[in-house]
């Protein structure tokens, strides 16, 4: 597993909002150690429907509970402030679920996170799950199973679809990281791939990408140089027209760049198996697990 495990102590920022409260409950029922909520002005209360204490500030929550990670559900224009507060209070991992964060705010937050050596996942992401141990975010826990496949993805529901295909074929997951669908974000593919490469629990890596930008092309080059474990990739958006934003802020083909075809070609040229359907991802993983390929 990478980044999080059953001992990870988690704070939820925005825990008393509708989304925050609902997902705090779901995380708790999955087994996540949610030890505190933070909502300014609601210190002393409990997260609705739970026994989790709410604090006014992240610093106080961290001091009282020893938490090291924060899951952020606050509204888009408050994420920069909330994220900086979490970094300053000593959190080592931020998971930003919020969608619609202005990208210049994201650039400022990632720049601060980098300079302080803090890892950030998101924004606009489903979070991270180490199946059977812990879940930080909004992923549906029942779809995932413990096992040897490491997953990294720019998408939410597509990740669930592929995890479902993997779980149905009895390929459980070590950890699954949703890095988010925004053009500017915290962790990118190379950082997550490196963590999986060094993780003894991970045998095979599944990389899920989509149109827009050149992160998959860069990931392909990175895999070729640095990753020893087999990788299976899936790219969404082969039928997407150019110049149109396909839901995610980052999913747009501009100036003829960022097409699914270019990404698939780069991945194949780097020796990565590229699947055309979620079910085919599971089939390729089966093949690789029965006859490992060494790069």
């Amino acid at each position: 597993m990478i980044l999080v495990n059953k001992n990870t102590k988690v704070i939820v920022q925005g825990a008393t909002g509708k989304m925050g409260a609902a997902h705090t409950k779901r995380m708790l029922s999955y087994g996540t150690q949610v030890v505190a909520g933070v909502t300014p002005g609601k210190g002393g209360e409990k997260v609705p429907g739970t026994d989790v204490p709410v604090f006014d500030t992240v610093r106080e929550a961290a001091e009282k509970t020893g938490a090291t990670c924060s899951v952020i559900f606050v509204p888009p224009y408050l994420v920069l402030d909330a994220g900086c507060e979490a970094i300053d209070a000593g959190m080592s991992l931020l998971v930003v679920i919020t969608e619609g964060m202005p990208p210049q705010d994201t650039a400022k937050l990632t720049s601060m996170a980098k300079s302080r050596g803090v890892r950030m996942i998101g924004p606009n992401c489903p979070g991270i799950i180490t199946p059977g141990q812990t879940l930080l975010g909004i992923l549906p826990g029942m779809i995932f199973k413990p096992g040897p496949v490491g997953m990294v993805s720019r998408s939410g529901t597509l990740t669930y679809e592929i995890a479902l295909a993997l779980s149905d074929a009895d390929h459980g997951q070590s950890t699954c990281v949703g890095i988010g669908g925004d053009p500017v974000k915290g962790m990118e593919y190379p950082e997550v791939l490196t963590a999986f490469n060094n993780d003894p629990d991970t045998e095979v890596i599944v990389l899920i990408g989509e149109i827009g930008g050149n992160a998959e092309e860069e990931a392909a080059a990175f895999v070729k140089e640095n990753i020893k474990k087999p990788v299976v990739a899936y790219i969404a958006g082969q039928t997407a027209p150019p110049g149109k934003r396909m839901g995610h802020a980052g999913a747009i083909i501009s100036g003829g760049k960022g097409t699914a075809q270019s990404k698939m070609k780069a991945l194949q040229e780097a020796g990565i198996e590229v699947a055309l359907t979620p079910r085919e991802v599971a089939e390729k993983v089966s093949k690789l697990r029965s006859q490992p390929v060494h790069r």
Binding site: S155, G156, L158, A236, G237, T239, A240, H248, T277
Partner: peptide, 27 residues
């Protein structure tokens, strides 16, 4: 988020990545 194309199968999903993947599978 709607983007119209030339075909005759209307596609509705939850989530951008899954919607694109469903379009690709239809094709």
């Amino acid at each position: 988020n709607l983007v119209e194309l030339d075909g005759n199968i209307g596609i509705i999903c939850n989530g951008a990545g899954l919607t694109m993947a469903t379009m690709d599978m239809v094709k």
